[in-house]
């Protein structure tokens, strides 16, 4: 109960700050509109207002405060505007509509999941190689680390262009950018996990003359699962970011990234914010789903939680 109150307090504070921030952010636009409509504002011309501070404008035009929360194209939309937009573009629109966030979300989700699958598969394979081969450990790991120092924003257009030139487009280029971001946490976590059995455990298997493969399946892999799941949760969030970033340079017509881009072209801030929230909700849902799978799997393995 106490924690619910705490969570609720924090949430209320964030929303309150958000509403307050809307007032100075949007006041100039509101006053410009009011002037055009023939309402008296202080000072009278847009030119004079341009040099004034937003706070000062709010104080001298208090009648306009209400308006700052209900503009068509605010600089910063109010929470309820975003909520209404989210509701309208998810529940009320048909899924097949180009304006449905469900439609766009599903486009991004499919790239995310494909990229996550590729990234996780690649990450696990690399980790297995790194743990079993000293050569791979020394040759692959540095490159894996270097790969993550390149900003994805710089790399994504190149990947898209290169793949386009060899005739690959659509889902796969986005998925590859996703995979690029998600394989790394999986490699790091999985290497740590596969190396987690101690000397005694390895000696025990040696006394049975167990093969490397048996050691992998019976000891290393099960020991690595808790580490793997921690990595997967980071990996899936990174995948989603990758898929969205992958949609930006292509001028993609569908996907949450495309929605963000279109919103910024046309100054549709409400649309941008609702797309952002849709992405955040999607990420939270994916991480939660992984958490559930983790609980079920580790629970079945008898791990005390």
């Amino acid at each position: 109960m106490k924690s619910i109150i705490a969570v609720f307090t924090v949430l209320t504070a964030i929303i309150a700050i958000w509403y307050i921030a809307c007032v100075p952010m949007n006041i100039k636009g509101v006053l410009d509109g009011a002037e055009r409509a023939g309402i008296e504002v202080v000072p009278e011309t847009a030119r004079e207002r341009r040099d004034m501070s937003e706070i000062g404008l709010v104080i001298s035009n208090r009648f306009a405060i209400d308006e700052t929360w209900s503009q068509d194209r605010p600089r910063l939309p109010a929470p309820h505007q975003v909520a209404v937009e989210l509701w309208e573009t998810t529940v009320e629109k048909k899924i097949t509509s180009k304006r449905s966030l469900i439609y766009h979300g599903q486009v991004t989700l499919s790239a995310t999941l494909l990229g996550f699958a590729i990234g996780t598969g690649l990450g696990i394979l690399l980790a297995v190689g790194i743990v079993h081969s000293r050569v791979m450990d020394m040759s692959v790991m540095p490159w894996a680390i270097v790969s993550q120092t390149i900003p994805i924003i710089a790399l994504a257009p190149m990947i898209i262009v290169v793949l386009y030139s060899v005739g690959v487009q659509g889902l796969l280029p986005k998925a590859i950018i996703s995979a690029y971001l998600s394989f790394f946490p999986v490699v790091v976590g999985m290497v740590k996990g596969l190396r987690s059995p101690d000397h005694m455990q390895l000696d025990l298997l040696k006394t049975y003359s167990a093969s490397t493969a048996q050691g992998f399946w019976k000891l290393r892999l099960p020991s690595s699962l808790p580490y793997l799941f921690a990595s997967l949760k980071i990996g899936i969030a990174a995948s989603l970011v990758g898929a969205i970033v992958g949609e930006l340079p292509t001028g993609a017509v569908a996907g949450l990234g495309a929605r963000l881009l279109a919103g910024s072209y046309y100054g549709q801030t409400v649309q941008i914010w609702s797309a952002l929230f849709a992405a955040a909700i999607l990420a939270a849902a994916l991480v939660a789903a992984l958490g559930l799978i983790e609980r079920l799997l580790l629970g079945r393995m008898g791990v005390k939680t």
Binding site: M200, Q201, D203, L204, K206, T207, Y208, S209, L219, P222, L298, M301, G302, V303, K304
Partner: peptide, 21 residues
């Protein structure tokens, strides 16, 4: 002898796999 399963070895710690009964 080890390959012929000549001995069983018990370590100081039980070292049971926590994910197995």
């Amino acid at each position: 002898a080890r390959r012929q399963r000549a001995y069983g070895y018990v370590f100081q710690a039980a070292g049971l796999y926590p994910w197995r009964t």
